[in-house]
Simulated scan of single mutants.
Amino acid sequence: MTTVTRRKVEYPADGLTMIGHLALPAGTDRRPAVLLGPEGPGLGDVERARADALAERGYVVLAFDLHGGRYLSDPEDMLARCMPLLADPERMRRIGHAALDMLRAEPRTDPDRVAAIGYGTGGAIGLELGRDGVDLRAIATVNALTTGRPEETARIRCPVWAGVGSEDPIMPAAQREAFTAEMRAAGVDWRLVVYGGALHAFHHPPVDHPVRPGIGYHPQHARRAWRDVTDLLAECMPVTE
């Protein structure tokens, strides 16, 4: 197994001091890099483990923070912060750019080979970076079929992969159709995978705090979605030793 170096990194964003998780692969050379965004509750052990797993594959990874070092385990607290955020593309972009600047400042990062992947709110931020014209190699989003200002979607310059559960009440069929229409109209290289029988946050192992209705873990589809994300990275941003 490749040795991974991990450290906390602090940076300002959204009026807060964000505390991200940086994972570095073995070696001293520059590597392709991944900006990894968490679900609405914020950066937790699941996202840190995913960052470490990608670093083992040879990527520099920053799992970024949403809430100034807090994990919002109460659904009402999470919604109170995330719903206004999701309704404000410029604010999402500022949070994304702050994290991206931190990732690109890492000496091990190849600034010309950066991808954004994310879940829920973190995935929406990745999409907004693409709509803002950021030079990314790939965008992958799970449970974040957010639509934006259609005239800006054509600024996405990389392949977009999206995954969602067929039974997700938070991202229902109408949302899938709106997302698909926006990507098609903009001429984006896009893919949408609908995982049959899966609910919202199907990728996330069970948690020990209350969750919103319509959320449920699907281990088989969680493994499939992770494989789809890593396949996208390998296609668009291969690691060369």
Rank of each mutant, 00 (worst) to 15 (best):
Ala63Gly: 03
Ala63Met: 00
Phe64Ser: 09
Phe64Pro: 05
Phe64Ile: 09
Phe64Ala: 12
Asp65Tyr: 00
Asp65Phe: 05
Asp65Ser: 15
Asp65Thr: 02
Leu66Gly: 01
Leu66Lys: 00
His67Gln: 06
His67Tyr: 06
His67Leu: 01
His67Ile: 04
His67Trp: 11
Gly68Pro: 14
Gly69Val: 12
Gly69Glu: 08
Gly69Thr: 10
Gly69Leu: 11
Arg70Val: 02
Arg70Asp: 01
Arg70Asn: 08
Arg70Trp: 07
Tyr71Val: 03
Tyr71Ser: 11
Tyr71Pro: 00
Leu72Glu: 05
Leu72Asp: 01
Leu72Cys: 06
Leu72Ala: 02
Ser73Trp: 01
Ser73Cys: 00
Asp74Phe: 07
Asp74Cys: 04
Asp74Trp: 12
Asp74Gly: 03
Pro75Ser: 09
Pro75Leu: 15
Pro75Asp: 13
Pro75Ala: 05
Glu76Lys: 09
Glu76Val: 06
Asp77Ala: 04
Asp77Cys: 04
Asp77Leu: 02
Asp77Trp: 08
Met78Gln: 05
Met78Ser: 12
Met78Tyr: 06
Met78Arg: 07
Met78Asn: 13
Leu79Met: 14
Leu79Gly: 10
Leu79Ser: 12
Ala80Lys: 14
Ala80Pro: 10
Arg81Met: 11
Arg81Asp: 11
Arg81Tyr: 07
Arg81Thr: 12
Cys82Leu: 12
Cys82Trp: 13
Met83His: 07
Met83Gly: 05
Met83Ala: 07
Pro84Lys: 01
Pro84Thr: 06
Leu85Lys: 01
Leu85Glu: 05
Leu85Gly: 00
Leu86Ala: 11
Leu86Gln: 13
Leu86Phe: 15
Ala87Met: 05
Ala87Gln: 15
Ala87Phe: 12
Asp88Lys: 07
Asp88Ser: 06
Asp88Phe: 08
Asp88Val: 04
Asp88Asn: 09
Pro89Ala: 15
Pro89Asn: 15
Pro89Trp: 12
Pro89Arg: 13
Pro89Glu: 14
Pro89Gln: 15
Pro89Gly: 14
Glu90His: 02
Glu90Thr: 01
Glu90Cys: 05
Glu90Pro: 07
Arg91Asp: 14
Arg91Ser: 14
Arg91Ile: 07
Arg91Tyr: 01
Met92Glu: 09
Met92Gln: 08
Met92Ser: 09
